[in-house]
Amino acid sequence: MKILVVEDHEELAQNVHAYLEQEGYVCEVAENYHSALNKLGGFEYDAVILDLMLPDGNGLDILKWLKSNQSDMGVLILSAKNALNDKVEGLELGADDYLSKPFHFTELNARLKAIYRRRKLKGHDIIQCSNISINSETMEVKVGENLLELTRKEFELLLYFIINKNRVLTKQSIAEHLWGDYIDSLDSFDFVYQHIKNLRKKLMQAGSDDPIQTMYGSGYKFMVSE
């Protein structure tokens, strides 16, 4: 999957670049409006991560340009302005998703994968991870041949884990992934803990090993031996 990151903060762009490469994406960085337009005009990407505030232009104009060129590229807006108008306008202009800064890399990864599934696979894909298989459209989960009955949140949690396998997921990022803005100021960790407990139990009952490793002090990791 080929991604263009349009971000003017050099360090952050490098960070995202490094992270996405680790995750197996092919990634390029454009640091301003003009180089972004040049790259988008010259190369094909599967998705573009778009910062709205650029030193020489507005990210929304890039989005407009993409849409007027009938591009099939997925667009994820990444903005710190947190201005509701921007979010609404961006989504109305045809962006696939909106993520406000600061964000968790694992969340960025999950959103990019979701865009990819929706656009390229039209939702028809089976995600296979050791002996667990997930159909993201029908929400069907199997461990080996055993069907797993999961609640919606447990399903989302499992998908989030598998997309970010072998990575530390902080409780905060899990809580924000599951409950979005609502979790803001709630003591979310108990809730995360309960969901993980239930998911673990169901996975083990279906015959899986316990793949969720508790990282003392930091969070959880979904272990998959490659």
């Binding site: 903060h9 360090e11 952050l12 960070n15 995202v16 490094a18 992270y19 505030m53 903005s79 710190a80 302005k81 947190n82 406000s100 800064k101 600061p102 964000f103 968790h104 890399f105 694992t106 530390v168 902080t170 990022s173 990282m215 930091s218 969070g219």
Partner: peptide, 18 residues
């Protein structure tokens, strides 16, 4: 913007460190 972008950077680096 000026505050959240460096924060995003710092948080990202720390998450990579984890």
């Amino acid at each position: 913007h000026e505050m959240q972008t460096p924060l995003a950077n710092a948080i990202g680096k720390l998450e990579l460190l984890l």
